[in-house]
Simulated scan of single mutants.
Amino acid sequence: MSKIELGEVQETLLIPLYCRAIESKKKNPKIKDEEAVQLIDKIDYDFSKFKQGKGSMVGIVARTSILDRETQNFINNYPDAIVICIGCGLCTRYKRLDLKNVYWYNLDFPDVIDTRNRLLSKNNENDPIFNIAKSCLDDTWPKDIKELNDNKKDILIIIEGVLMFFTEDEVKHLINIIKTNFIHQKVTIFAEIMHTIPSKFTKFHDTVNKTNATFKWGIRHAKDIEKLDSDIKYIEEWHYYDEFSFDDSALCHTLGKIPGMKNISNKIAHLEINPSN
């Protein structure tokens, strides 16, 4: 068993890891992450405290399904792109996708990257998959992207399970880091967005409340993120409730039909930053 030491927010990375593993063990799983199954058996941690997190389970399965699908679609369209996974945690998405000729960067705090380096490996040692041990609010992380100035490469940035733990000023700072460093090409962003209401009630969240992390930010509508910076553009969004049709839960079906309820759930926003325009 491997003992890990993580900061308060970093500890939340174990929630999606656990949920992906539990879903993967089902007879007919909606997602399949064998790496997650192996990892929860390797890590010395009391995962049982997340066992009652039914809402988190359904949400993370939906989130994973959306991001796997849309990331693969992006790669299919831009097979030579750069993909940057901000707040990567122990995400294993790159192992589930056909990466074509993509350069894949995982970015997270040093304690998280140290954990990744100990527990996760590439499919092949020659794969262009790299880890950056920095906070995404550190202005210098883009300099670690070797292909930064290759204006022929399209950029996809995935921000999953991160923004709700930031203040609004920190969200603005992250946007500014991206737009001031990736100035030669359009940047596509897939960002998980939390609504204002749940962002105020961490204590009622069915898994995060088992940690010392606290939600700090949410917005009423994903399009409202355009108000934070004139260079960011909202394109579309994918609601978790739209993925719940494959779930057996009658509650999910019922809640998804209540006006406004879909918008209050988390969603993935498809955004673009193109400072040259």
Rank of each mutant, 00 (worst) to 15 (best):
N131A: 10
K146L: 08
I177R: 00
D138G: 07
G161P: 05
P128L: 10
D144R: 10
N212R: 14
T180Y: 05
F215R: 06
Q185H: 03
K186W: 10
I159D: 00
F182Y: 13
E147L: 14
I155H: 02
F130G: 06
K146F: 06
T196F: 14
D154T: 15
W217N: 10
E170Y: 04
D154P: 07
E168W: 11
I157A: 00
E125M: 14
K172F: 04
N149W: 10
Q185F: 02
H205N: 15
E168N: 13
A191H: 02
L163R: 02
K200D: 05
N149F: 11
P142G: 08
E160Q: 06
D169M: 06
A213S: 06
D154H: 15
I193Q: 03
D138S: 07
K152F: 14
I178N: 01
T140Q: 15
N181H: 10
K122Q: 11
K153N: 07
N149D: 13
K203R: 15
M194T: 06
K122M: 14
V162Y: 03
D150F: 02
V162S: 03
F201W: 11
F204G: 07
D127F: 03
L174T: 04
I155E: 01
A133Y: 06
F190A: 02
E192D: 09
L137T: 04
I177Q: 03
N124S: 13
T167F: 04
I183Y: 07
L174D: 01
V162T: 05
P198T: 08
K134W: 11
L163P: 00
N209A: 09
N176R: 12
K146R: 12
T188L: 09
A133K: 09
T214W: 06
K134A: 08
I129F: 09
K179I: 15
K203A: 13
K146I: 08
V208Y: 00
